[in-house]
Design a binder for these strands. Structure first.
Lengths: 348, 348
DNA sequence: GCTACAGACTTTATCGGTAAAGGAGCTGTC
DNA sequence: GACAGCTCCTTTACCGATAAAGTCTGTAGC
């Protein structure tokens, strides 16, 4: 038996293929009677509905939106914070009848899907905008929304107030009287350990890092303080933290790029028999679910990833709407608010 | 300016469209010289490569695989265990050059993507096989792999030894001398609280529940014990646990369907001032990351979700290969091993 | 000098739909 | 009774590619 297509159903019923198509896609275009007959015949033939690829080609819509993430997707999903973001994106898209396609951007080979998978648009999540995969998507002419990154002109970006949050975190430590401050961050290359000077250019292209860095430094410099800076190559696999705490001129407080790093630092301190916040006060960033669980609970800067995800989707949907109707409003970039959450790890 | 297509490039260069297509997809079909010229011209015109939808229609491949999950996707992703599973699936697919599309199966409306998005196959994750969305995918003729569910004939299923794990968990409690045992599970309808009799038919269609239930019951009955059974409508939002612990004939040990439930039970017990395992021994299931963090750390049955995800993808890829070459081997169903991990929550 | 064959393109046929305009028949209206 | 306006279905045109077979040319072998 050949494949069942609209045409084959049409032939059996002696109607035009277009009418069969309408039976599925535009019920108002034919009589209820005929529609029922067509649907019955289709069911009898085991035909479920129009072929997605063909429909996609004809209509120019794919029914799904891409999410590009720089790192290994398993890394993203193993982290509760980003997993929740992705969940929020998925839900919000689903409500609009769209699916979410996870696009890898890691290796050269894995870039392929960014080129070959049919998409209606994409969300670029925390990626260096210069990545080849990002470029691929942009050149495909897809509507793009950037999250936690600076968007090129005319593209909406959903970000949080990384600068303000970091500044507040630093000011919090200063207000508690800390003067010997350690900054723990990624971005200074592959070797862990103390570094000096500003982050390299490549690191500053990561908006999150650049903004948090700026926030810290502005607050600290205003107080006349130069922090120690420790590099952590992989935010998810911190190491060498112990050495930092072994030095003579030990810091009394630490600002960490993320809660994950902060938690690792606390663990390292505890292992050395130091108390937190007594011997070392620690501030994280994100209000990762981890922050509340950590003992002592972590002072951090809260961001709302759920909101972030939904905002990104809404911006994308707005852009989609605008393509359909150019008079519709263009989506705006948004910077979401953050707030300092003081917990035990800096308790006075 | 019109849209740039293969044809428009072909026209400008005076070659056939097919040759341009080959320049992108089959470099060996034309001279390096001409290929370069074509690629240059394409780049100049801002043409990135073949249109995904059109290519998809012509080749019959979509470049992405669907993952169907019954609940809200945000629920799946908020749970570390299932997020990791999804991450493993995504990674393994990426290595094969495929993307992962998250399909919602919740509401009637959200089923649409399961019908309209182009896919090469799908992984059905812990779904009631009678769900409309599953049916949609099956009728589309897609290769399907079932995970944590019983597959229809000829479809591969990746499962774990839920039965054996549950039995081992129950036997562990028996070996510790417990006789008054509480079973905490979902599946008995929307009301939390004590129930009697076996789970309703609808619940038994969920393989995980059915198998774990069977494992527990077989072990308990062999010891001549009839457990109390408490229903929890939503595994992620347990409630009413306190009431169970308030009864006169209080259990001395509990078997929980999942670690999430187990952890909630421990929390409820602690709130009542009961000690675990002293007043109540608790066993979970999954070896959720939670299990190790919980205090006291949770005795549980370990499964390897990473392995499960990768096995599912490999089965799907095998099925895909078999469609291309019918002489290839059909993918086999697999049942992955589990192991009892004894921690503090049942420490003798 | 003729056959065989490889390389480099081109031709023909298909993939399975949808949008928008076109026409036929019926009803109602003044 | 002619014109408008519906409803319902058909026609025409197009979406943007790929697979497989066909054509032509140059060259190697003998």
């Amino acid at each position: 038996m050949g494949k069942v297509t609209l045409q084959s159903i049409a032939d059996r019923l002696g109607v035009s293929r277009m009418t069969v198509s309408n039976a599925f896609s535009r019920p108002d275009q034919l009589s209820a009677d005929l529609r029922r007959k067509i649907l019955d015949e289709a069911a009898a033939l085991g035909y479920l509905g129009p072929d997605p690829s063909a429909r996609s080609l004809a209509t120019g819509t794919a029914g799904t939106v891409g999410l590009l993430w720089t790192k290994l997707l398993s890394t993203a999903l193993a982290d509760e914070m980003s997993a929740r973001f992705i969940g929020a994106v998925a839900d919000e898209l689903n409500q609009a009848g769209l699916a979410l396609t996870l696009l890898p951007a890691t290796t050269e080979a894995a870039v392929v899907p960014a080129r070959d998978v049919a998409l209606d648009g994409a969300i670029i999540y925390s990626c260096d905008p210069q990545l080849p995969a990002v470029d691929l998507l942009a050149r495909r002419g897809l509507p793009l929304v950037y999250v936690d990154a600076d968007a090129p002109a005319k593209r909406p970006a959903i970000t949080i107030d990384d600068y303000g949050g970091a500044k507040a975190a630093a000011e919090h430590l200063l207000a508690l009287g800390h003067r010997r401050i350690l900054v723990v961050t990624t971005g200074f290359g592959p070797e862990p350990g103390l570094v000096t000077g500003p982050p390299p250019a490549a690191a500053l292209r990561q908006r999150v890092l650049a903004q948090r860095w700026a926030g810290w430094m502005d607050a600290l410099q205003a107080a006349g303080i130069t922090p120690q800076v420790a590099n952590q190559p992989d935010p998810y696999a911190p190491h060498g933290l112990d050495a930092l705490l072994a030095q003579a001129d030990r810091p009394s407080a630490a600002l960490c790029l993320t809660d994950v790093l902060a938690q690792a630092l606390i663990a390292a301190a505890s292992d050395r028999g130091m108390t937190v916040p007594g011997d070392l006060a620690v501030v994280g960033f994100d209000d990762h679910p981890l922050a509340e669980r950590t003992r002592p609970a972590l002072t951090t800067v809260r961001q709302d990833v759920d909101l972030k995800g939904r905002a990104a989707v809404r911006a994308l949907l707005a852009e989609l709407a605008r393509r359909a109707d150019p008079s519709a409003e263009a989506p705006l970039s948004q910077r979401l608010r953050v707030s300092l959450v003081v917990r035990e790890s800096t308790a006075g």
